[in-house]
Design a protein around this nucleic acid. Structure first.
Lengths: 188, 188, 188, 188
DNA sequence: CATGAATGAGCGTTCATTCAT
DNA sequence: GATGAATGAACGCTCATTCAT
């Protein structure tokens, strides 16, 4: 089952890259990532033609994980605020529980190594979040504004909240709720 | 007037660094910065012992400019919302008018080349913004929360708004006001 | 056989370094050494983390070669003067035959890039020379003096003699013998 | 008296160079020497066209000082051994008392920055030492050998002795005498 | 396909030297 | 002549990428 072995190595490399990027920045050498993944330097380049490809792949992986986590098993029958709260909670708790992924994603977001194509692909699957946001603002002061504006508000406040949860683990839940209330007022 | 000349070169280097960082990222070679500033490579190191020192200096310069711009000639007698609006407007318009500084600052904020000491120094002078924010939330749902939490909300929403203003220059003012209303609701 | 290849390159680098140092001084660029060894610049740093490491390694290699050569297959049953002469001859002839190593070693000896640890390690194996010297001075005017004093006399006169042998290759053997007689009188 | 001022600076530079070279090696930056001499960087180059010129000048200065010190007020009427002992004592005591000059000279001796011309000029004034040495060996085993050979023996043993005196200041005089006795036997 | 040594372009930094003041 | 900032060639070293095994 060589395929499985290869996928193992690829996954190990991605996991190692996230840890290394989180602690050393995106400029960390590929050799360090390979060592952290316990594979040879060359193996990294068998899986990712260039470092840029690795960066883009990692970006997609984390972003997709965020989206899937946030959506989860959304309570479609609940009222809007409850649905939003469900998503917000899952998202922020995931972030607080995965500081390396959170930090690496933050750096990748502002890196110019990430292509537009990658950003587009990585956003796939977020439609239902967008739909929900659209409904959330339908009666608020942001009605009629582009979805991207509302999405940006969500991301900005969610990321800020996660950072606070990481800094103050003892009050993580409190800050998550506080962040949600702030977000809900912002878009209402 | 060697002193004046030297300050000229230093200022030219900072200005060049901001342009180069904005377009090439913080990893841009020092040689490129020196060339952009029209000085020799070595001159950069006469003014900044290391590249890290340059990064920290640029961070402080931009951050101070943001703070000074935001504070401006604050209308201390106006009501709170008007004061906040004044600051928000000046801040976001400055950001939209200085995309290179905005982008460079954003990268520096998440760079691990910036020391804690630098972050502390760069924040000096922001007290009156903090005071105002404290008064803004005094009767809202965030009363009693740490000032850093409220500050983070301000920064997150302001930066998001500025990005929108840069993307859509035609509707910059509209987005600035939209962002402010969002912020105001968020903290009220 | 990558291990063997790597050792080849390392040996080639050491040999090249000795030639280059001898003719250009210890300040010779690493690039010149790599070129002389017919390898890429980076390969030097795969084998020696820093130039200082290379210098220390070269020092140990040459010093050990001197010691092993001087000891040779010492005639333990001969009388003391014959044993001393055997060692002196092998040492000085080696020096005359290896002027690059002799010159490089001389420069390394006074370089502050060579650590105490290196000097200690490089001296290993010289015990039997020290033992012999101790016996040589046992009945002379230097009896009871520290071994290092006698060793220094040996080194000073041997090196001086080697330089003369290199300068006057035609009379190398004569100067070697003359040097030995001088040394023997010095310590008797 | 601008001439005097200039000579002052030149002397200050030479003194500073000796201190800096002794502690940092000959590769020490000219800027460090100028700073140690309390003059501007450029002033060094007003006095010495290049760093190599400075090195050669320092070499001549120290070497001449050694020679003058060694000769001193030689007791021309004393017997040969007493004359030799007088010179040896003055030389080795000077070396022990001036470790910076001793160390700097040792480095300059093996540097390839020192020209043959400089080495020739620096040796001027040593004739009477040579004459005395010639007489010293006239009846010994080295009679008829080139003067340079005997001179080299002298230098080798004197330098070795000085190093010992520096290492063991408490027994400096003892080592000086011990060194002389060794030298006298070596050439007798 | 995995390995890890080899490669060499490129970077941050140094420093002898120049020159405007 | 004194100054010290400006200069830029040169250096030690890094690291993404290649490729022989």
């Amino acid at each position: 089952m060589p395929r499985i072995q290869k996928e193992d190595k690829k996954a190990a490399l991605v996991a190692a890259a996230i840890r290394v990027f989180a602690s050393q920045g995106l400029g960390a050498p590929t050799a360090m990532i390979a060592k952290e993944a316990d594979v040879a330097n060359g193996t990294l380049f068998n899986n990712f033609p260039t470092k840029t490809d690795l960066l883009n792949y990692v970006y997609i992986q984390i972003k997709q994980e965020v989206i899937e986590t946030a959506i989860g098993d959304a309570p479609v029958d609940a009222d809007l605020k409850q649905q939003a709260y469900y998503m917000w909670s899952r998202w922020t708790r995931w972030g607080a529980a995965n500081p390396d992924k959170r930090r690496t994603l933050a750096m990748l977001c502002v890196s110019d190594e990430i292509s537009e194509e990658t950003r587009r692909v990585a956003g796939q699957g977020a439609d239902c979040i967008g739909d929900m946001l659209t409904r959330c603002v339908a009666n608020g002061h942001l009605r009629g504004q582009p979805l991207t504006f509302v999405t940006s508000i969500l991301e900005a406040l969610a990321n800020m909240t996660i950072d606070f949860m990481i800094e103050n683990p003892d009050e993580a839940d409190k800050h998550s709720d506080l962040g949600f209330e702030t977000f809900w007022r912002a878009i209402s």
